[in-house]
Design a protein around this nucleic acid. Structure first.
Lengths: 310, 310
DNA sequence: TCTATTGATGTCCTGGAGGTATTACCGATG
DNA sequence: CATCGGTAATACCTCCAGGACATCAATAGA
């Protein structure tokens, strides 16, 4: 089989058309070069160069080999560089699962920053439920999920990147709308828009638990899966709701958000991935998402103080 | 720079996912393989395989390298094979100049046989005058010319591949039309269609000389450069002409061809090429053209005996 | 005829690829 | 829990292919 060295030598001689100069360019002595070329010619049975004393010329086979050698050498160089970049996570492909609500906060900012830093990593985005992400991770359908804490199969690792407090959403005309905060008990007789237990078990359970702690059971007048829908229903005056604070980022008017005085436990946004599928790109994505999460929480802590009518 | 060996090793390990088996497949011992892979990983700074005890897995960088290595190795193999074939003249490109009249005989047969034997040699055909071929050869615009003897620049070699006798062409109704041969002197008072001296010096000079030897100067009533045109004019009854015997192969009716009793010197068809540009494909082409020329002459010697009205 | 140029040849040397033996690590098994 | 089996990594040695150096051979040009 031909060796890379031989291609390099053919290229040098083919371009210089002079064994001495070609050898100098290759940082080897001329006899070594002569012998290598001879060896190729012997291996292939094809004369590559016509050495008339005083000048060297390419044969047809030589010209063919010169051209193709150039191309292979280029590819090889590109390969080495790409492997190097892939090793640093600058090259590759990342399939990201995400829950719908993350598009109102973390995800766009994370993607933007990631694309800036790693423009040659191909990103594939898939909106999927928390449960779907769990199975997709287990089946290796996605590389990483931007999701919520849940029961994941063994071998799936998670990292919490943001804690979202819950807030109360009330219609703008509601008596509470001008307050910055409220105790939960104040809502005991309000009609509630809740998350359905089946499709949003985490939110459903968290909210029921905090109301229970406050001493009442919320009166469900309606349920909706998407945070966006819930807030929409509130704005339509159907009732009040307890939603994660990112809901403020949605462009929905006619809704006021109030801090909950009991400070119930927040809900996390987590990254989830298979430990065994940890790639450099994934590591990079994780680091960026984590950073963005931190910044995001800092921002929200600041804005929380002001009045919150959108 | 990456070595071919390294690509082969990555491919083996990437496909077997087992150092021992990969080493066996490569006919080397396992430690050597381990070391080489380590060296690549060190060179590129990218982990290619995850060696969890009990199993070997590809990283993203490894998968990238595996795929690209396969492709480069394939190309390299193809290259070696192609160089080998190019050396034997089975691959390449041949630009052939030819005079128009050769399409009535040698050229089609030569091309057909050459294509059968060397299907991967690309052929480029250019109809050009004898003089144009001479300059094209000198300027390396064509690899070989199918032409006539002429003054060629030094470094241009020629090989005669066919001798064509001259014959007399007369209209079918002409008193001589039923004869198989005639002495030239019999034509001294006939109107002649001649080849112009400027564009067909060889034919012009040959014909004038043979008439002169026969004791007369032909009366030119018309001139034409192409043999085909000359024969056409004869068939139209404009006069008689002296043309090379291949003219019989043209599909022109109403013309009779007669042997010349004086047996004037024939005219050659030659191959011309630059000595320094002798490629294997050219050698092959030359051999075939030579063979076809021999066969062609044999055929004509046979048919010459019969009556020659077309 | 002599000299300069340039590729080929002869000879020796060395780095690195490979081999053998062994170790290290882990999982399975009784 | 000790041991065994399987697998990759390490240690150390061998050997050869590719390279350096010196020289030759052939030719062009002065």
């Amino acid at each position: 089989m031909l060796e890379i060295r031989q291609l390099r030598y053919v290229q040098a001689v083919g371009e210089e058309l002079h064994f001495g100069r070609a050898a100098a360019r290759l940082h080897i002595a001329q006899p070594a070069l002569s012998r290598q070329i001879q060896r190729i010619e012997q291996q292939t049975g094809a004369a590559l160069f016509v050495r008339t004393q005083r000048k060297v010329e390419l044969t047809a086979a030589g010209a063919l080999m010169l051209e193709r050698s150039r191309s292979i050498l280029r590819e090889l160089e590109q390969l080495e560089q790409d492997v190097r970049r892939a090793g640093k996570g600058e090259l590759g492909r990342l399939t990201i699962g995400f829950i719908h609500s993350s598009t109102y906060g973390l995800l766009p900012r994370t993607l933007q920053r990631f694309r800036d830093l790693y423009p040659d990593v191909e990103l594939e985005l898939r909106e999927m439920s928390i449960a779907d992400q769990a199975t997709a991770l287990a089946r290796d359908d996605i590389d990483v999920g931007l999701t919520r804490p849940a029961r994941y199969a063994p071998g799936i690792e998670t990292l919490s990147i943001m804690e979202e407090a819950f807030v109360v959403a009330v219609p703008a005309y509601h008596p509470l709308a001008s307050s910055a905060s409220t105790p939960l008990a104040r809502l005991s007789n309000e009609p509630f828009i809740l998350f359905p237990r089946a499709s949003s078990p985490l939110f459903n359970a968290s909210i029921l638990r905090m109301c229970e702690t406050a001493g009442f059971t919320p009166q469900a007048i309606q349920t909706a899966t998407q945070v966006h829908t819930v807030v929409g229903l509130v704005s339509a005056g159907m009732g009040v709701a307890i939603v994660p604070v990112t809901a403020k980022n949605m462009q929905v008017s006619g809704v006021a958000f109030l801090r909950i005085q009991e400070n119930p436990p927040p809900v996390s946004v987590v990254l989830a991935w298979r430990t065994s599928r940890e790639t450099p790109s994934l590591r990079a994505f994780r680091a960026i998402a984590f950073k963005v999460g931190e910044e995001f929480m800092a921002t929200q802590a600041r804005t929380r103080r002001g009045g919150d009518v959108c």
